[in-house]
Write a protein that binds this DNA or RNA. Structure first.
Lengths: 218, 218
DNA sequence: TTAATTTTAGAACAAATGTACTATATTTGA
DNA sequence: TCAAATATAGTACATTTGTTCTAAAATTAA
């Protein structure tokens, strides 16, 4: 593997373990097994590493984000897309945990993210419409209600990892399953009987996303 | 005002403005108009300042937390308690924004917070039962569903400020109203017709928590 | 009043860190 | 093959920061 990749890998491990504020060019270079002079030759400073990893993650999430709310999406599709995305986000969890601090310095990342959230909002709205047409989701109970629901979905989607870090520490897959299950539950009261049957099948003990989520985490 | 209080005030302002990672004993002392030697005489380091402010916040939130889910609570009571708490959290927003980084160093705070979340969870469950008895809330649609809902409520309650910081920056009251409105909407699909009427009265343009939330924030 | 205590400012120092620079070593391409 | 380029290790330096120490100033209490 080439040096740039080894650096990124070491940076990712260390950012996740101790946060972007504690990791330095020297500590990351040590983890990668190279000199810090060499690291700075490839990446001027830690901010460049953060940005590179952000772009890496964005590139890996994009396919799922596209797929998620394409035409004819079903509740099962939403589950699957969220599951894949949750897994990826967890691999790059330092980005979500340190996001505010990072975007205070990297204005470009902040604006990129704001645009991304606007797109997500549209995708959610469109996805809801699709699910309604599939007969899995009901129309919104009050005017403008789905806008508010989406606000909550975005908060949960962006911050479950911070919550997990404080509540459970570094428990890997079990944590991902736990919060995926929780977020998906936000759909329940808006589902039609048909949608609810799909939900119950997916979350059943022998379903694709059931059972394993409920082991005690602490 | 005595020196200790002036220090805490300066620290709070600076933590909120630039984060706990950027503020130093020297910068805070400068903001308070004293020497850093003097600051260290009162508080050994920034961690002691963080802990002092955390305790200050905990003391100010406690009354609302108690009141929130006492016997015979109504939806209106829930709205009011959340409103008060949201306002207080916003004043100490650095704590929520930097919480993961902080608790990595201050194990005691982390454990205190974990216990607090356990209590909150019980309070929510009890509160739901109260609202059901008042005839404002329906029983859970699926077994264990309210546990999952509470997980989401806690994530939103603890992280709306981080989301606000990235999305809107420092917009004060308007931001608080915006996210309060969003979080309260999570109750909607579980409300009885009676509960829904209460909700609509509270969020009406001329209601206690209506209107003002919907000015554009960006 | 005056001695003890508390508070304050500032200096001093070591450790850490970002940044730049230098000198080899390695790889590439003609 | 061999010159040009790229990559690497290590050094050097200025800054920042936490921490400790000293001495002066202010306050307190007898």
């Amino acid at each position: 593997m080439n040096t740039k990749d080894r650096i990124l890998q070491a940076a990712l491990r260390q950012f996740n373990a101790i946060g972007t504020g504690q990791a330095t060019v020297r500590s990351i270079a040590a983890e990668a097994g190279i000199s810090h002079g060499n690291l700075c030759y490839h990446y001027k400073n830690t901010d460049e590493l953060i940005e590179a990893l952000y772009l890496q993650l964005a590139g890996r999430v994009a396919p799922y984000a596209q797929m998620a709310f394409s035409e004819g999406i079903s509740l099962e599709g939403v589950f699957g897309q969220a599951w894949q995305t949750f897994g990826l986000l967890y691999q790059y969890r330092f980005l979500l945990i340190d996001f505010v601090q990072i975007t205070r310095r990297l204005e470009r990342m902040k604006q990129n993210f704001q645009q991304l959230m606007d797109v997500r909002r549209q995708q959610f709205l469109y996805g809801f419409k699709q699910l309604e047409e599939q007969g899995e989701m009901k129309p919104e109970p009050l005017p403008g209600h789905y806008e508010l629901l989406i606000t909550n979905l975005l908060i949960v989607g962006n911050n479950w990892i911070s919550e997990a870090e404080v509540q459970f520490g570094d428990k890997g897959d079990a944590v991902v399953a736990h919060y995926h299950r929780a977020m998906m539950a936000l759909f329940v009261p808006y589902l039609t009987p048909k949608g609810l049957r799909a939900y119950q099948a997916l979350t059943a003990d022998d379903g694709a996303y059931g059972g394993k989520a409920d082991k005690p985490l602490r």
